[in-house]
Write a protein that binds this DNA or RNA. Structure first.
Length: 602
RNA sequence: GCACCCGUAGCUCAGCUGGAUAGAGCAUCCGCCUUCUAAGCGGAUGGUCCCGCGUUCGAAUCGCGGCGGGUGCACCA
């Protein structure tokens, strides 16, 4: 909050000191250590190099033009040319007082700079159970959406379901020949999964159970579906309906919703046109009965072609660079997900004209997105001039053996079962701690704590790193976990509630007095909320926000231990009460942006 | 073989786009409830930031070369 003001004034001072300098902005960041003050600027040192001047000399000139006496103590020039800013407690108090009046929550909304985003995340497959892998895309995507919206951007969410493609040939065949109606009634997705596995074992020529007749039969069902066969369409719609029930249940528990659920099938009518157009423009050509995009079709003139190392359509095999084409039409005439993804970009650009499309998808698909984005850029340069395409990748969830997480029987854990277990384990804990509460109350606390812990564990590691799933660590009540942060929230909220009782007289919160070390530390952290949100959005990394709420919770806990609130004398009491209120507000807001609920008692 | 991701304390991980003495949690050890919820707080121990070279005022961070782990390399998404 204040650092934005400092940046603005610093920028002005810089231009005053060096009128010719071509500098768009100057970054002011929270200082790494309190002994260097509250904020620091190190940009002048790199700038000095560009301007070919002595950094300390430049710093001296800039500081001479800088007027921040209302906000800080005299600015200190340190080391090779750092600027250290030490906030005045009165300036800090004024920002808190404004926040207490509801004028802001320590961040500046994008306003005129608001952008339009399409965020593509979660994307489960129809007729398959959502599994542990979906938690990452869903959690990271949902959190990024919430952060972007909080910052004032326009966000359109789209759940790009896997509801079309070769698997439906097998599913249709299974449905017609070996469906167990009772099992379907009891557990629809489980039965569909069984059908798929059984038929797939017969259709996969790599498996010992392979039966060519079955493969042909499955393909025939698929062709009929794609040709609009009424019976197959009906079955397909029923599978969709059953799947949507599952999705609704899981998303409901997770508190996730989408503006649009346009699955792959939605784009079916345009796929042939996409291929024809790419061929007509010479960007794709036939090869081995299929149609594909090659390095030499996409960049016909060699001069414009990227170096082999940076070319997503080349791969080195046995010391030679060979084609790594992107298939847009299979030899059997079917289309695949590259074609669908191209049609999807076309639709999104046409429909929403976004500034950016963000794909929250497993890192293993990075090569696909490199190809996709390259084709889009050559196909319609006007689209990519307006719309930035971003793949936000993420790593795997591992078991204790550092291999992808499996259940005891070797299967991929189902998401619904994971949510159940999180709530059950949390209930055991709540019952230990708060046996006196009613069962309904304990269950509600367990729901909030269990799901919060699960989501938080998933968002805390940087998204690109693989992480080890650990129930005990996740639900630990100490350390950097959701329950810890949620608990600090309940304490802050409780004090704020109790302190605002009617018998306490008028509140003197127009002036905030900050004296104690823990009060100052807490107040300064509150001010960094906006900076954290910006970083989170810029890097598509919710872990920044996790670490922030943890730090804030931790600072609150130290404050709580050292600074009595309700028993303090005025005006200290009111000032501390404001700190409690604002901490509770920011913790609730921050956790909310992570998709994590809070609760009034734990 | 090639590309991408990763390598930081015994363990699990951060590290704000190149900043000042590399941080946190867990684990281990020692303290603190007559006091707004101890699901808490304080302290101690713990490092060749995988290795080497380079770029510069300054490198865990950037470049190059190794070593080690993971992932991906036409008709599945």
């Amino acid at each position: 909050m204040l650092h934005l003001e400092l940046e603005k004034r610093l920028h002005a001072a810089l231009l005053a000191a060096r009128p010719g300098a071509n500098v768009a902005a100057v970054r002011v960041l929270p200082a790494p250590d309190a002994k260097f003050g509250d904020y620091q600027c190190n940009a002048l040192m790199t700038l000095a190099r560009e301007l070919k001047t002595n950094p300390r000399q430049l710093a001296t000139e800039v500081v001479a033009q800088l007027n921040v006496a209302d906000l800080c103590e005299p600015v200190e020039i340190a080391g090779p040319g750092f600027l250290n800013f030490r906030l005045k407690p009165t300036a800090l108090g004024a920002v808190l007082a404004a926040a207490a009046r509801g004028e802001h929550l320590f961040f500046a909304p994008a306003g005129a700079a608001a952008r339009t985003y399409v965020v593509d995340f979660s994307s489960p497959n129809v007729a398959k159970p959502m599994h542990v892998g979906h938690i990452r895309s869903t959690g990271i995507g949902d959190s990024l959406v919430k952060v972007l919206r909080r910052l004032g951007h326009r966000v359109i969410t789209d759940n790009h379901l896997g509801d079309w493609g070769t698997q439906f040939g097998m599913l249709l065949l299974g449905w017609k020949t070996r469906l167990d109606r009772a099992a379907l009634e009891a557990d629809p997705i489980g039965e569909l999964e069984r059908l798929y596995k059984e038929v797939n074992a017969l259709c996969d020529d790599a498996k010992p159970t392979f039966d060519p007749a079955m493969r042909d039969a499955a393909k025939n069902e698929l062709v009929k579906l794609q040709a609009g066969d009424a019976e197959n369409l009906g079955i397909w719609r029923e599978m969709q309906r059953l799947s949507q029930l599952q999705f609704d249940s899981v998303y409901g528990r997770l508190g996730v919703s989408f503006d649009h659920t346009l699955g792959e099938s939605f784009y079916n009518p345009w796929l042939a046109g996409v291929v024809d157009d790419l061929v007509a423009r010479g960007l794709a050509r036939s090869s081995k009965d299929a149609v594909a995009v090659f390095a030499d079709t996409l960049w016909a003139d060699e001069a414009s072609r990227p170096a082999p190392k940076d070319n997503p359509f080349l791969v080195q095999k046995d010391g030679e660079w060979v084609d790594q084409p992107a298939l847009i039409k299979k030899s059997d005439g079917g289309f695949n997900y590259m074609t669908t993804d191209l049609a999807t970009i076309a639709h999104r650009v046409r429909e929403w004209a976004p500034d950016e499309i963000v794909y929250v998808v497993d890192d293993r698909q990075a090569p696909h997105f490199r190809q996709l984005f390259a084709i889009a850029a050559r196909w319609h340069p006007d689209w990519t001039a307006k719309t930035k395409l971003t793949h936000v990748g993420f790593g795997k969830i591992c078991g204790a053996d550092k291999k992808p997480l499996k259940t005891r029987d070797g299967n991929t854990p189902k998401l619904a079962a994971l949510l159940d277990e999180a709530e059950e384990r949390a209930l055991t804990l709540v019952t230990e701690k708060r046996a006196e509460l009613s069962e309904a109350r304990r269950k509600e606390i367990a729901r909030v704590v269990g799901l919060g812990a699960l989501k938080y564990q998933d968002l805390l590691p940087h998204r690109t790193s693989d992480y080890v799933f650990n129930w005990d660590k996740m639900l630990a009540l100490t350390g950097n976990t959701a329950p810890y942060v949620q608990y600090q929230f309940t304490r802050a909220a409780k004090v704020a509630r109790d302190g605002n009782g009617s018998d306490q007289g008028p509140r003197a919160n127009d002036q905030i007095f900050l004296v104690e070390e823990q009060e100052l530390a807490l107040a300064k952290l509150l001010l960094n909320y906006g900076h954290t949100l910006t970083r989170t959005a810029e890097d598509y990394s919710p872990n920044f926000l996790c670490n922030y709420v943890y730090e804030l919770a931790s600072a609150y806990s130290r404050f709580y231990d050292n600074c009595p609130v309700l028993k303090a004398e005025e005006p200290t009491r009111s000032s501390r009460l404001v700190l409690c209120e604002l901490t509770a507000k920011v913790l609730k807001d921050g956790l909310g942006l992570l998709g994590i609920e809070t609760i009034d008692e734990m």
